[in-house]
Design a protein around this nucleic acid. Structure first.
Length: 669
RNA sequence: GCGCCCGUAGCUCAACGGAUAGAGUUGUGGACUUCGAAUCCAAAGGUUACAGGUUCGAAUCCUGUCGGGCGCGCCA
């Protein structure tokens, strides 16, 4: 019976052998196993590992190809390295295949759910703030990306040995909240989610939209009465003018447009302000906000009631998506917290007070404390506290940041928020630095691109109804999963009572893998008409491979009395097909992928890895039978057992990786 | 105007500064009496937006140009 070293030990052994060979040929190189980084050759025919000799050659001041050739020439095979070949500047290593496959399979078999787990983040306690919704409307597809990224990130960090606190900062106060409340007060007829049968967050969202529509109508009437073109309100007109100028080819027309732009000045903003100042509706919303801040019992009661509905709705969506939180912060609790700190900043001389009483941080100070962040940016001074003492977003964020570190003794604080807020967080972290908090260096904005709609479909804006609603999206996906299951019901292996559960699991796998495989800094294009596929490079395909392996293992146990736990003397040397090596080689990468993912705060490498692993497995499986035909004959027992072991290792890694992404892996589907 | 991000196959996306830039999808042609066809195989698809530069080597780094997105609020 053969025993195998653990994978990490084995890889270290390879590096040591290699280092020894290099030392022997080039005693001056001073190279050790720790200096060696092993890569994957472009084709496994060349070898399982590759050592690029560029750094070594630089050290020796020789040509990398000659160095590689010299080392290869002297190499004597070891128990683990069968062959060392130079190919240009690379040394390609061909390992003793049976041993390598044994190491990988046995390591996975022994470590099970802990394969790939590390202590990389030992001693660090990290808060991952994500989701952070407003309580005036339901979650949309943009929030979905946020939630999935946040959840996966938290999982990965925990797996890498960090202490992790998952937090949600609920934005539950402000004018936008009052808008929904006012609309409900005016036109709601005391309806409730129960009475209307509408999910709480959607119901409140309807009133928000109703308010915005009413305000829009008011603006139209106002514009007509003042004889000002409606398009001149707000900043949008200025923006469209700029675009027109850009596109304009005719010089005289262009001059005319540029003239108009100069004339415009701040008119758009001015018109909008003038409109709002006299607006009946907006005035009422503001009054409601003031009453809220003064603890008016009636307003507070309404606020409590409606926020309760929204949060109930969110909870349902979070449960469906599998989002978990250890701590909820509510802006209504924390919004006053920043005030004292901001005042303190004035005393310290890092912020300043305007004659009207408002408090600001100057652009100069920001440049001073974070020169690199603001290089080349024409910054304006930033308001931290209004003249009337009320908070803005920044005030609240300063307070909450401090509270987080106090509450949990954090070493790092991560904010999963879309990239449109990059500047906001640069300023926030700089303000914290100015206040003298040393941990400000350990605050990180984890940003990701937006979710965009296909060309011609406008932008995702919940106010204008172009947003793709999160709940709608999920239920549409579930409906499609059920349709698909119906189509292929003959081969379905799901018991009747688990149909709904499985359909949800598949739908979410499709959604999550679709979103999580894309690099964080890219926008995702989402086409609501095509939604998301279930075949090809998708989450369900990964689940499918996993379910098939589970089924095969069950069959092996039930019909062929093979107890996987008792397979102790497996001859991995029988696995000599290139596809089997390809799968093994990929399994052995998993711990590195997880490590990279954790260190870069990015889970997309894991998603891409799983898609690729699944593809390689499917190819192997199509070519090399495990428990069918001749494989059931006695003379093939050993080969069959080895293949079963490898398949099980694949299933284990799929399950671990998918759980890091927050995706289920059902045993039947 | 200033700043940040993106530009890779028809489409959606991969590729620690490294070897012949890879998948899926679409379309074409094959493979189910046999481990689950949500699968596999084959051919097809590229001047990595463009122009320079850095070096042994650039899709990746630097400069410029062109496209697209976002930001520069007493909104959050």
């Amino acid at each position: 019976m053969s025993t195998y070293p653990e994978l990490g030990q084995y890889l270290l052994g390879l590096k040591e052998s290699l280092a020894a060979s290099v030392q022997q040929k080039f005693p001056d190189s001073g190279i050790t196993a720790g200096d060696i980084v092993l890569e994957k050759p472009p084709s496994l025919e060349l070898g399982e590992f590759a050592y690029p000799c560029f750094n070594l050659a630089k050290k020796l001041k020789k040509n990398p190809a000659l160095v590689a050739a010299a080392v290869a020439e002297n190499f004597v095979a070891t128990s683990s390295i069968r062959k060392l070949e130079a190919a240009g500047p690379y040394l390609n290593i061909q390992v003793e295949a049976g041993q390598f496959i044994g190491v990988v399979c046995e390591t996975i078999c022994k470590s099970k759910e802990n394969f790939g787990r590390s202590q990389d983040g030992k001693g660090r306690r990290v808060m991952v703030e994500y989701s952070s919704p407003n309580t005036n409307k339901p979650l949309h597809i943009g929030h979905v990306r946020n939630n999935l990224i946040g959840m996966a990130l938290a999982n990965v960090l925990e797996f890498c040995g960090y202490g992790v606190v998952k937090a949600n900062l609920v934005n539950d106060r402000g004018v936008h909240i009052c808008k929904s409340m006012l609309a409900y007060d005016k036109w709601g007829n005391d309806t409730t989610p129960q009475l209307s049968g509408v999910k709480g967050d959607h119901l409140v969202g309807q009133f928000y939209v109703q308010f915005e529509n009413a305000l829009k109508k008011e603006r139209e009437e106002y514009a007509a009465s003042k004889n000002i073109a409606l398009k001149k309100f707000g900043k949008d007109y200025e923006k469209s003018l700029r675009e027109e100028i850009k596109a304009c080819k005719d010089p005289t027309a262009k001059q005319k447009l540029q003239h108009e732009l100069r004339q415009l000045g701040d008119d758009g903003e001015k018109f909008e302000q003038e409109f709002l100042a006299q607006s009946q509706l907006y005035g009422e919303a503001m009054e409601m906000l003031r009453n809220w801040e003064q603890n008016d019992p009636k307003v507070r009661a309404l606020w409590q009631k409606m926020n309760g509905w929204v949060l109930d709705g969110f909870r349902t969506t979070y449960d469906t998506l599998g989002c978990k939180f250890d701590k909820f912060y509510y802006e209504s609790d924390t919004y006053t917290l920043g005030r004292d700190q901001v005042e303190e900043g004035v005393k310290k001389g890092v912020f300043y007070r305007q004659p009207d009483g408002s408090i600001w941080v100057s652009a100069d100070k920001l440049h001073e404390v974070s020169p690199r962040w603001f290089e080349g940016i024409q910054l304006k001074d930033k308001l931290l506290l209004r003249a009337d003492g009320t908070s803005v977003y920044m005030t609240q964020d300063i307070g909450t940041a401090i509270l987080k570190f106090k509450d949990f003794e954090l070493t790092d604080s991560l904010y999963v928020v879309a990239d449109e807020q990059i500047l906001h967080f640069k300023i926030l972290f700089s303000a914290l630095k100015l206040l003298g908090f040393p941990w400000a260096e350990h605050c990180h904005h984890i940003y990701y691109g937006m979710v965009t709609l296909p060309h011609g479909m406008g932008k995702i804006k919940s106010r204008e109804g172009t947003a793709v609603d999160a709940d709608d999206l999920i239920s549409e996906m579930v409906a499609r999963a059920k349709e698909k299951m119906q189509e292929m019901k003959e081969q379905l292996r799901v018991s009747a009572d688990k149909l709904d559960e499985t359909a949800l699991s598949i739908a979410l796998a499709a959604l999550k893998v679709f979103v999580l495989q894309v690099s964080m800094d890219k926008n995702i294009q989402f086409d609501p008409c095509q939604t998301i596929e279930f075949t090809g490079d998708t989450g369900p395909a990964i689940q499918y491979s996993h379910a098939r392996i589970c089924n095969m293992l069950r069959k092996a146990a039930d019909e062929h009395q093979i107890d996987m736990k008792k397979l102790s003397d497996v001859d991995y040397g029988l696995l000599n097909a290139p596809e089997e090596m390809a799968v093994t080689r990929q399994l052995c990468e998993f711990p590195d992928i997880v490590l990279t993912s954790g260190r870069s705060y990015d889970s997309s490498p894991i998603a891409n890895y799983l898609l690729s692993l699944t593809k390689n497995y499917a190819r192997m499986y199509a070519l090399h039978p495990v428990i069918k035909g001749d494989m059931l004959k006695a003379e093939n027992t050993a080969l069959r057992n080895a293949r079963l072991k490898l398949a099980q290792a694949v299933a284990d890694v799929i399950r671990i990786g998918m759980s890091l992404l927050g995706v289920n892996t059902p045993e039947n589907m």
